[in-house]
């Protein structure tokens, strides 16, 4: 197993009391698998992602990556954030080269790798621009190229397309799916869009309302290149919708 989440739980201190955010979670992710974490807002799906990334420590349990426990963030796990989080003082190229600079690669080599990934996300002509000059969709492409260029085996994505308009969102889902067919990463993808999850995932993990635990897991047995209007696709969509709705309804009670 590439990633093993073993009894991971997390609580936060709220007004002097420990409030659980995530109840013990067990989840095994195989190499090259795409897992979408789905659940109502505040259910702890981002918390789980942050624990796997090493940004947060679990209050119980542990995460193993390639059988070694996670103790902090590392270059083996690339992260793509909802708000892009590009380095505003670096050009597009500089952002994509960031991890390569840390690895001590020579300038020429860095440039070639960065160019390759910028081409992959369709941003070749924008390499010299600064983030402030880019649209949201372009910024997220840079963030994806930055994560990929560092060649992590795992990519963690925290609602990466959540801040984008519907059209851009679908285009980027299609690009991510195309890139994954080339790059074969292990991907943990947090979203609250069921369509997005069915479009991208090998397995969709549905969490309950807060404090989150795993409610249901759906293996999506659809072809690699997916058609959002296929009967099978919409069948998965409605099946998962039914399960998610139960949780959302409870949140509103």
């Amino acid at each position: 197993m590439k990633i093993r989440v073993q009894g991971v739980a997390r609580s936060f201190r709220v007004e002097g009391r420990e409030a659980p955010a995530l109840l013990p979670i067990d989840l095994d992710v195989a190499a090259r698998e795409v897992i979408c974490l789905l659940g109502p807002s505040g259910c702890g799906k981002s918390t789980l992602l942050n624990i796997v990334a090493g940004f947060l420590q679990p209050t119980a349990g542990r995460v193993l990556v390639d059988d070694a426990p996670v103790t902090g963030p590392g270059a083996d796990r690339g992260v793509v954030f909802q708000e892009y989080v590009l380095f505003p003082w670096l050009t597009v190229q500089g952002n994509v080269e960031f991890g390569l600079v840390l690895k001590g690669l020579a300038a020429g080599e860095r440039r070639d790798i960065a160019r390759r990934y910028l081409e992959l996300v369709g941003l070749g002509p924008h390499a010299e621009k600064y983030p402030v000059q880019l649209s949201g969709g372009m910024k997220q492409r840079v963030a994806i190229a930055r994560a990929l260029a560092n060649s992590p085996s795992i990519i963690l994505m925290d609602e990466p397309f959540g801040a984008l308009d519907a059209q851009t969102r679908e285009v980027l889902q299609e690009e991510l799916s195309r890139i994954q067919r080339v790059e074969h990463k292990t991907i943990l993808f947090v979203t609250h869009s069921i369509r997005e999850a069915v479009y991208l995932a090998d397995r969709v993990v549905v969490l309950t309302k807060a404090p989150g635990r795993i409610k249901d897991v759906f293996a999506i047995k659809l072809p690699e290149v997916r058609d959002r209007f296929a009967t099978e696709f919409t069948r998965y969509e409605s099946e998962i919708t039914r399960v998610v709705k139960e949780e959302v309804a409870q949140v509103h009670q």
Binding site: A53, G74, V85, F98, R146, N150
Partner: peptide
């Protein structure tokens, strides 16, 4: 978040 992004890049 900038620190997190950098840390996840190594």
């Amino acid at each position: 978040m900038l620190l997190r992004a950098a840390a996840s890049l190594g």
